[in-house]
Write a protein that binds this DNA or RNA. Sequence first.
DNA 1: TAGATTGTTACCGT
DNA 2: CACGGTAACAATCT
Length: 262
Amino acid sequence: MPELLEVELYRRLAEGALGRPVSRVSVPDPHCLRHTSPAEVGRALSGEPLNAARRRGKLLLLDGSRATLGVHFGMTGGLVVDDRLAIDRLRYGPGIFAARWVRFEVAFADGGHLALHDPRRLARAELAPDEEALGPDALGVALGDLRAALAVRAGTAGPPLKARLLDQSKLAGIGNLLADEILWRASLRPSRPCGSLTGPDLRRLHSHLAVTLRELGARGGSHTGDLMEQRRPGGACPRDGAALERSVVGGRTAWWCPRHQR
DNA sequence: TAGATTGTTACCGT
DNA sequence: CACGGTAACAATCT
């Protein structure tokens, strides 16, 4: 998915859909609904406008007067409002709109609409999502909250740092690309045990996390990192030229520099 | 073609 | 039990 930066773009796009009465809900692919049915979502949202578009981590929250709709975008999901697709340059996605990829759609009385678009079918929509199951949002996270997110039981090494950064219940919004970029900038190995981080390590990680989100947000998304081009076989560290290593951490592919990431 | 992909979750093991 | 690794999900691209 779309990591936090992409979902924030979707949230801004969704603001254009607020205040417009919902006329009906259609769900071309009911597979995308979790814990609910097309009829129930229709009853929950029809007749009233959406009042707010919020985000927590990678979860988009659309508040109606009677219910809140939560949208997860999976790996390749996007949001469409009034036929405008918020496109990410998904490396493995088409980056184009196709009607058959509209999985869920809210039609407004004024003729416009808001739709969940996903070539693959990993995106999900649900009513009353459990927001509290997510950790604090990574965007703007305070040092103390990051420390708490990375805390481990006394006397244990804890999980690999990257695995914890990807754990949405501890810290919400960081995905695979952002994690690699942040760790590369902070000179920390993805496999570094959380429990081994020193005070200076933690402060360095916190500042790089904040700067990375700000910079990549301004550039246009999670795929605009300095490491992105080299995340491939034969890739070299943009900082020191060392051959990048590839490994699996937290169930995802990690690319990192064995020379400067410790 | 085989293998990879910006995510989440059920399940299994320690 | 808490928590991490793994496979599955699904479709597309190199």
